[in-house]
Amino acid sequence: MFKAKIYIILKPSVLDPQGNAVMHALHSLGHEEVADVRVSKYIEVMFNISDEKIVSEKVELICDKVLANPNTETYNYELEPVSDAEANKN
């Protein structure tokens, strides 16, 4: 099995009002050195597939079709092998 750790990130050209609000909050706490904040989504997906290459293809497919909106978002991901014993703990 594999765990995909997927990050959905706003494109740099897209304004992130949430990130701006968080940055202002950090500034008001005295963290003036904070230059920029971008808020993203993090999604974990477990795959019952043992071939890492196929998992990659699946992740990219579901990101392109569902998890990310190509108009405004990009994504990246990491794959982590998960043993059956570990998977069963959940």
Partner: peptide, 16 residues
Amino acid sequence: TESGLLPGVLMMNRDL
């Protein structure tokens, strides 16, 4: 827009 029947996307309001 999410179905691709119309272009663009609706994002969170400017003032959240």
